[in-house]
Design a protein around this nucleic acid. Structure first.
Lengths: 220, 220
DNA sequence: CGTTCGCTCACTCTTTTGGGGTAGGTGCGC
DNA sequence: GCGCACCTACCCCAAAAGAGTGAGCGAACG
């Protein structure tokens, strides 16, 4: 679980090659139709790339949105192993939430781009992935590197944090978790220390920003 | 300030026409290169539309991201009046935050689409705007209608809320606003009543979910 | 002119929080 | 076995928060 920031460099690091001479077969499966069209337009103009049809051909690189990518990796993990190497996964999304980037990287995704990236980063990322490299835009890599300074919350502290982030008071948290109020206070105190918070409200804010809160603070 | 949900219907309502026979001149100025390319690809395929070059021609419809659109409307408000009718503004974005939609609509934007919309909604929206209508996808309309049940926070309550959402205690909020702690308590209580919160932590969560917090809870 | 509303403040009183410290039990790895 | 991290629980005590009430002041509105 402990990752080393040096493993996720900006430009890339070595890997096993594939399709050295042939065109890079790219499969675009982003959930947003507009983004899909944009990716196709931008990549279709590249002479060394070839847009693949879904399920027709085996692609070298597959482009997905964040959610789709996680789903894809989940299915891949559960599926029987193929002979052929699975396509590299590149996520293109609009949001920049470090914990999502980290989650994706831990799930085995090879690249992560923001929609707001420069137009030339897209083909660069695809080429990097096709050569077995990873690609993370500079801002994202900084962002992820920062996140490695993450606090190590214990299970119970995480439990308490989730309820805390719902605005519950110690008493109701204790009731919910089936423990004593004093114990809740202990965990809350632990959260303060690890998050650098001075009050529970502050802790919720900090935890939310660091992506430690699992619920829908961001969803409407 | 009080808006009536009936003014923002899903499909549209009347308006003054423009360019009845000619092609619709569309100017695409989205900040994301990928989205830009996607919009161009999708709209370029429509026979009744014509993609305009920036500043070269006067467009009928201009497509922007949320931020760009607000900036555009701000400049338009400050600029001297032109003889020709200004282009209709269509926002295309990924996020669905009702308060942003409402803000945009109040700023005079005519259409709001999500990137995740069906591909045929895009040309439909452009055509609607070119005919002087408004266009809001069904989910967004519902979303905005819901938001009209919004609590009416006073200026001071909003001030307090912002600081509250940063995790500050009453004393520091009072210091920052130059008022007494007792007054802060009054406003905090007002927030509780209007938000339906039971505690300050709870209030922060609720306010964040309703998009009342302006700061960077969403930004990393 | 009276009313309403927002902003301000003060005062009780109870509950909650937060900062200390202490300590027993459990599981895990060296 | 022993240390170590974790979960649990309790103590005291000061500070803060929250509930309730009252009240002065200025601007807006009918």
């Amino acid at each position: 679980m402990r990752l080393d920031a040096r493993n996720w460099p900006h430009t890339a690091m070595g890997g096993n090659l594939a399709n050295h001479d042939a065109k890079v077969r790219v499969l675009i499966e982003h959930s947003d139709a507009i983004v899909n069209a944009g990716l196709a337009a931008l990549l279709g103009a590249e002479s060394d790339m070839q847009l693949a049809q879904p399920q027709l051909t085996q692609a070298d690189v597959i482009i997905l949105d964040h959610k789709g990518a996680l789903e894809h990796m989940r299915q891949r993990a559960n599926a029987p192993h193929h002979n052929e190497a699975p396509p590299r996964v590149l996520i293109v999304t609009q949001l920049e939430r470090e914990w999502e980037v980290r989650t994706a990287m831990m799930a085995g995704v090879h690249g992560y781009l923001l929609q707001s990236c420069a137009a030339d980063q897209l083909p660069a990322a695809v080429r990097a992935l096709s050569r077995g490299l990873r690609y993370l835009s500079a801002d994202l890599s900084r962002c992820v590197a920062d996140s490695f300074t993450r606090v190590g919350l214990t299970n119970r502290e995480t439990d308490v944090l989730q309820l805390l982030a719902q605005g519950q008071c110690n008493k109701s948290i204790a009731r919910e978790l089936g423990i004593g109020v004093g114990t809740v206070k202990t965990h809350v105190k632990g959260l303060f220390d690890k998050l650098g918070a001075t009050a529970r409200t502050h802790a919720v804010v900090l935890a939310t920003r660091r992506g430690l809160v699992g619920d829908g603070v961001i969803d409407l």
